[in-house]
Design a protein around this nucleic acid. Structure first.
Length: 312
DNA sequence: CGTCCAGGTCTAC
DNA sequence: GGTAGACCTGGACGC
């Protein structure tokens, strides 16, 4: 416990000069409610524990700063210039500030259902690693949200590297586990501690392949659309154990590949509710968002989550 | 207490 | 290529 706290501001602007609504970004999808991320409602801030290129992970709060800026704070930290820059880079990465959403906004501007978004919505919080997006997504499949929380919570609490000054127990204040850490534990961990059921074998296999280098998820997830088109990325993801159509679409959306719509037992009824309550066929939904081309999945997601932040 | 199913996926037809 | 059944777990529900 140190009374010192490091803080710095980060300009909230997209790569194309677009506005960025921080609070909307913080609440952009469900994974921000899973360790090592959490939302501090009263402060309108995102807390996340991020690995840094050097030294231990750090837990940073990303909240509102001066106009069009985020304020980053880390308790009990007095970093050097290099480390401070690393943390700023990590926060910018998590907020996806390197992405240019202006092509999407150009299309949204002419859509009465989505024109509201151009004020700074549509930026989805990004995990520090692709591995984390994949593992968490697998932990959302075929189970309730409370089960997802249990599984991810156990992973981070028991296998995540603690940040300096982190609490000695509990899932917060720890970076998401590395593939090596997840590959090093026995099956019994997945069965008895994480209680992952049949997903345990998928996760263990995924972690082992990622740890050995046989599978480079980070390269896969960060490849450009030119070198790896969406269809090919989808095929590669679908080949992963435990990743089917829903999970592939969800992972792709989190990777900034929005061509697929996330269709599952939450999105289908939610879309139906927004359209008079009658079930809507997948093909009908696909058709409605086809005009968005590579942004179809993002447009769909924003329509579904518009009411997550009141006032829009 | 049994059945169903949740932000599905895999295997075997 | 499309479609049943099985699959871990544990809340929610009906009986």
């Amino acid at each position: 416990m140190s009374s010192q706290a490091w803080s710095a501001e980060l300009a909230l602007v997209g790569a194309g000069g677009e506005a960025v609504n921080l609070w909307r970004t913080v609440q952009s999808h469900g994974l921000v409610d899973l360790p090592p991320m959490r939302i501090h409602e009263d402060a309108r801030a995102l807390e996340i524990t991020v690995p840094l290129p050097t030294g231990r992970p750090r837990t940073v709060r990303i909240g509102p700063g001066r106009t069009a800026r985020a304020l980053l704070t880390v308790a009990g930290w007095a970093p050097g210039r290099r480390q401070a820059d690393d943390l700023l880079d990590a926060a910018a990465y998590v907020l996806r500030l390197d992405e240019d959403l202006s092509p999407f906004y150009t299309r949204a501007a002419t859509d009465p259902d989505l024109a509201w978004a151009i004020g700074g919505a549509g930026r989805l919080v990004r995990s520090p690693t692709v591995f984390e997006e994949v593992v968490k997504t697998i932990c959302t499949t075929n189970c309730t949200w409370s089960a997802t929380e249990r599984m991810v919570g156990a992973l981070v609490e028991h296998l995540g590297e603690p940040a300096t000054g982190a609490p000695t127990d509990g899932p917060y204040g720890r970076a998401f586990p590395t593939p090596a850490a997840m590959a090093a534990v026995e099956e019994s961990f997945y069965r008895d501690v994480m209680r992952a059921g049949y997903r345990g074998a998928y996760l263990r296999s995924l972690a082992a392949d990622a740890a050995s280098g046989a599978l480079d998820l980070e390269e896969l997830g960060r490849a450009g659309r030119q070198e790896l088109p969406d269809d090919e990325l989808a095929a590669r993801l679908l080949a992963l154990p435990g990743v089917g159509p829903y999970a592939a679409a969800h992972i792709m959306m989190l990777l900034g590949r929005y061509s697929r719509l996330v269709l599952d037992s939450w999105t289908r009824p939610k879309y139906a509710r927004l359209n008079g309550g009658r079930p809507v066929k997948d093909s009908t939904i696909e058709r409605r968002f086809r005009r968005y081309g590579p942004y179809a999945g993002l447009a769909f997601w924003l329509v579904l989550t518009r009411d997550w932040v009141p006032g829009e």
